[in-house]
């Protein structure tokens, strides 16, 4: 019997190693898998490359990883926020490398990796600082920038419900990068509010098919009240 359910966040992240590349879902705090990140911090590994839309908010999640000095490089679109003080301090001290990527290019490059594409040509960023030094091609009279896929060793994402085959549904805007990160990592670990029996998720509404998910961990929502 195939059972991708893992008991507890610590067991789910037990093989994440020093130097690993880790995609982390979430847009701000919506969809941020805080408990998986806490377990990753507790493992004590470092020199990580983190791929996330932001560079942490407040004291939790990605911000805590940066605060603890575990992040060597971050790939994101919007690091600077009112409560990104841990990133700001690390960046100004030269302790963290930043690859700034326009948000749509970030999504497209992650999706490209998950789709097996060698590269994409995107119009976003053409003629700007963020395309400097990159190959440009004119296609049908419009200019495009060559961008390469972003893949990762692991993806930590947060979904609403999952089953033992790894099928997932998400909740509201907490979906954001979850489905595409699940495709782009060698090992995708999903924390869900509940693991339900096979068949309980309507096959017509599965958002992420289980083929993209290797581990599912049930973590009861702590801070967020989930409506029925």
């Amino acid at each position: 019997m195939i059972d991708k359910a893992i008991d507890g966040a610590a067991a789910a992240v037990a093989d994440i190693h020093d130097g690993a590349s880790v995609m982390i879902g979430g847009f701000g705090t919506a969809g941020m898998p805080d408990e998986l990140i806490d377990a990753l911090i507790a493992r004590g590994v470092g020199d990580l490359t983190i791929i996330n839309n932001n560079a942490g908010n407040g004291e939790h999640g990605v911000a805590a990883l940066i605060r603890e000095g575990r992040v060597h490089k971050i790939v994101c679109s919007f690091p600077r926020q009112s409560d990104s003080h841990h990133f700001d301090a690390a960046y100004r001290a030269g302790k963290i490398e930043l690859e700034l990527v326009p948000q749509g290019n970030l999504a497209a490059r992650i999706q490209a990796a998950g789709s097996g594409l060698g590269a994409i040509f995107t119009p976003t960023g053409y003629g700007t600082l963020l395309a400097e030094g990159k190959e440009v091609r004119e296609i049908d009279g419009k200019y495009y920038v060559l961008e390469y896929p972003i893949q990762a060793d692991f993806a930590l994402i947060k979904a609403h419900k999952g089953d033992r085959w790894g099928n997932l549904v998400f909740r509201k805007t907490a979906r954001n990068f979850g489905p595409i990160m699940a495709m782009a990592a060698k090992t995708t670990i999903a924390q869900v509010s509940a693991i339900v029996p096979l068949g309980e998720i309507d096959p017509e509404v599965v958002v992420t098919p289980g083929i993209f998910v290797q581990r599912v961990v049930a973590i009861a929502p702590a801070q967020i009240a989930v409506a029925a």
Binding site: A108, Q111, A225, A227
Partner: peptide, 28 residues
């Protein structure tokens, strides 16, 4: 407020009847 229902400015919002959700690649 439902902090899983936010806008790009990370403020709490609502969804109108008939509205829908999608992932980032579809959004862009």
């Amino acid at each position: 407020e439902d902090w899983e229902l936010i806008n790009a400015g990370k403020q709490a919002v609502t969804l109108l009847t008939g509205g829908c959700f999608f992932h980032h690649a579809d959004s862009f």
